[in-house]
Computed example of a mutant assay.
Amino acid sequence: MSTETTNSDQDEIELMACHGITKTSVDRYHYKTWSYSNISDAAAQARREAESEPSR
């Protein structure tokens, strides 16, 4: 990953500083085509799907 700051990155930094805006990273959990903000919801969907599949 590059440590260089582009003009658009610098513009974003300045805009955030000017208005007191903060930025955070958010973890996402993916199960097939779905995306969840917490592991419990992702696991619940996986369980529901496993329960609905016919036994082999």
Rank of each mutant, 00 (worst) to 15 (best):
M1A: 09
M1N: 06
M1L: 09
M1Y: 08
S2G: 13
S2P: 12
S2N: 13
T3E: 15
T3C: 13
T3Q: 15
T3H: 13
T5W: 07
T6S: 14
T6E: 00
N7L: 12
S8Y: 10
S8M: 09
S8P: 00
D9N: 08
D9H: 07
D9W: 00
Q10C: 00
Q10S: 06
Q10T: 04
D11P: 01
E12P: 00
E12Q: 11
I13S: 07
I13C: 04
E14I: 05
E14A: 07
E14T: 06
L15N: 10
L15T: 07
M16A: 15
A17C: 07
A17H: 12
C18S: 14
C18E: 14
C18P: 01
H19N: 08
H19P: 02
H19A: 03
G20W: 02
G20Q: 03
G20K: 00
I21Q: 04
I21G: 01
I21Y: 07
I21C: 02
I21V: 11
I21R: 03
I21K: 01
T22H: 04
T22Y: 02
T22S: 09
T22M: 03
K23Y: 01
K23E: 09
K23S: 05
T24K: 08
T24L: 00
T24W: 00
S25P: 00
S25G: 02
V26Q: 03
D27V: 05
D27E: 06
D27P: 00
D27W: 01
D27Y: 02
R28W: 00
R28E: 05
R28A: 04
R28G: 00
Y29M: 01
Y29Q: 02
H30V: 14
H30W: 05
Y31F: 15
Y31H: 10
Y31V: 07
T33W: 08
T33Y: 10
T33P: 02
W34M: 15
W34E: 15
W34R: 15
W34C: 14
S35E: 14
S35H: 05
Y36N: 03
Y36F: 15
S37P: 01
S37R: 07
S37D: 06
S37V: 04
I39S: 06
I39P: 00
I39G: 00
S40Y: 05
S40R: 09
S40Q: 09
S40E: 08
D41Y: 03
A42T: 04
A42R: 06
A43E: 08
A43K: 14
A43I: 06
A44M: 08
A44C: 06
A44S: 10
Q45K: 15
Q45I: 09
Q45E: 11
A46W: 05
R47I: 13
R47Y: 09
R48G: 07
R48Y: 12
R48Q: 13
E49S: 05
E49F: 06
E49D: 15
E49P: 01
A50L: 08
A50P: 02
A50K: 12
A50S: 12
A50N: 08
A50G: 04
E51M: 12
E51T: 06
E51S: 11
E51K: 14
S52M: 10
E53S: 11
E53T: 10
E53C: 09
E53F: 09
P54W: 08
P54G: 13
P54F: 10
S55K: 13
S55A: 13
S55V: 11
R56E: 13
R56Q: 10
R56T: 08
R56V: 09
